Simulated scan of single mutants.
Amino acid sequence: MRLHQCWTTAAVAIFVLTGAAFAEVTVSQSNDPTQAIGEQFASLLGAEHKTVDALPDSKQTALAIGPKVETKLKPGKKAGKPMIVDYSADWLAALPAPSGDAEWECLRKALYFESRGESLKGQFAVAEVILNRVDSAAYPDTVCGVVQQGGKGGCQFSYVCDGMRDSMSEAAALDEAGRIARVMLDGAPRVLTLGATHFHTRASNPSWARRFPQTAAIGAHLFYRQP
């Protein structure tokens, strides 16, 4: 008898507790602010769908595609197929006579003094270094700014402050440098030095060469990328 009463009492207690818990959950859900927000959001979406469905097909297409974005090329860049560089004298000579602005003149001059006498690949490689610096946040953002930049122990490019008169008297070398400068400023791919930002001759041994990874060796120059 006592056992039966105990089971009965336990059953009643469980029923009461379960009912209370259910009531608590029900009240909590009815007062849940996220439920009200969700219902309002669903209502707004329904109204928006009705508005869009009422538009003509052309308007619906325009909404789906979105506004037209115009892409502007940077100065000196040309649209079209990627340029293929042959790195041969015949290919370079067949290009139109080069000309340009101050940026072209600065690059032409730097190539003349820093890489004159090197192979075409060697000269293109030096141009890559200069333009890689232009693209780097660690250096000036113009060609002229890069080649004329000073630094600890002197200029970044020796011809700028070596005290010698900048006479560009070798016409063939100057023409070659001008053509290379034009090609590079027009967007030729930089594939020779793997992002190099520094170079030096094989005869020199600057301290930074022991810290920077070497990326290429072309002619008399070794090339490195600043980490």
Rank of each mutant, 00 (worst) to 15 (best):
G46Y: 00
I130E: 02
L17Y: 06
P75W: 01
I14W: 03
A172N: 14
S204I: 10
A94H: 05
V183R: 06
M164N: 14
Q214K: 15
P56S: 10
M184R: 02
K152S: 15
K121L: 05
M168L: 05
R2K: 06
D57L: 15
P140I: 08
G100D: 09
S204R: 10
R182H: 11
F124I: 10
G38P: 02
P227L: 07
L63G: 07
D186T: 08
Q226T: 15
L185T: 07
W7T: 08
A97V: 13
T51I: 09
A138Q: 12
L174F: 06
S207E: 13
H4F: 02
I218Q: 02
R116V: 00
R165G: 00
G154R: 00
A21D: 10
I218C: 04
K152C: 05
L73D: 07
D135I: 04
K72D: 04
L63W: 03
I84K: 03
K109R: 14
Q156V: 14
V25I: 07
A220K: 12
D86H: 03
P227C: 10
G178R: 02
G76C: 04
G178A: 07
R190E: 14
K72C: 07
S30C: 03
D32M: 04
L17H: 06
L45T: 14
R202F: 00
A47V: 09
R179C: 05
P67A: 15
R179M: 00
T142R: 01
A20L: 12
F124Y: 11
V129Y: 03
M1D: 08
D141K: 10
A54T: 12
L73E: 11
S167C: 11
V143Q: 06
M164F: 05
L131S: 11
E170S: 12
K68R: 15
S207G: 13
T26P: 01
